[in-house]
Amino acid sequence: MQEVIRTSDLAKTYPNGKSVFAGVKLSISPDQRVALIGANGAGKSTLLKCLIGLLPSSQGEIMTLGESFSSTPSSAQLYRLRRQIGFVFQNHGLVGRQSVLTNVIHGKLGLPGSWRAWHHSLAQGNWREEAMQVLSEVKLSEKAKSRADELSGGQAQRVAIARALIRRPKLLIADEPAASLDPAVGRDIMKIFSDLAREHGITLVYTTHDMEHALNYSDRIIALKAGEVFFDLPTRDVSRAEIDNVFQG
């Protein structure tokens, strides 16, 4: 089965010459749930953005969802990639004054006919139904009419997950999705992520610096330390001591 993500000798260096990571070799198969861990500044988010072409890499080759590129993908590749990827950020990035339903339908932006995703009232019927379907999957269908700025942090992040799912992505990328939430809500969000990814057969790659989130919701853990892959193991083979080691200076 073809990998969803494959890299060889990937490196990223900032214009000032500072190296973020180097020699990164990854191979992620479909349906895997991968936790990318590392201390603050280890380059997790930068690596994630390089893998999907949102940031240029400095060296090496990347193959994501069948699109091969070095440094940055072409605009046609980026367009094809974006159609297959769902994103969830640490900050949910919802439009506070819009309804939950409109925010979910915003997930269709960037697709053909996407001007109809500006507002739920413009959206075609099947998009509205899909939006309600994904909202029910994150257990928020009763909030469809509520304004996004009336939601709690956990609810807002669930809407962000629904917005990512409505794209029917093959790959779901989440950058510290539970970092700004309290522990119980954070666990709830990670469980929703993990369950939905498994249920829909979506490859999930998420960054976290929470040991529990890495151990409990992934099939595989990739640890970054000092700009290199420190370990890359199935989650069942990773001990807490090894994770502790990642975060120690």
Binding site: L54, L78, Y79, R82, R83, I85, G86, F87, F89, N91, H92, G93, L94, V95, G96, H106, G107, L109, G110, L111, S114, W115, A117, W118, H119, A160, R167
Partner: peptide
């Protein structure tokens, strides 16, 4: 607010969509 704009630009929303949607 820049965060929703960045979130939607990341999925390929063009400037007009960001203007009207966000």
């Amino acid at each position: 607010d820049k965060k929703p704009q960045e979130a939607l630009q990341a999925i390929g929303a063009n400037r007009v969509s960001v203007l009207f949607g966000v």
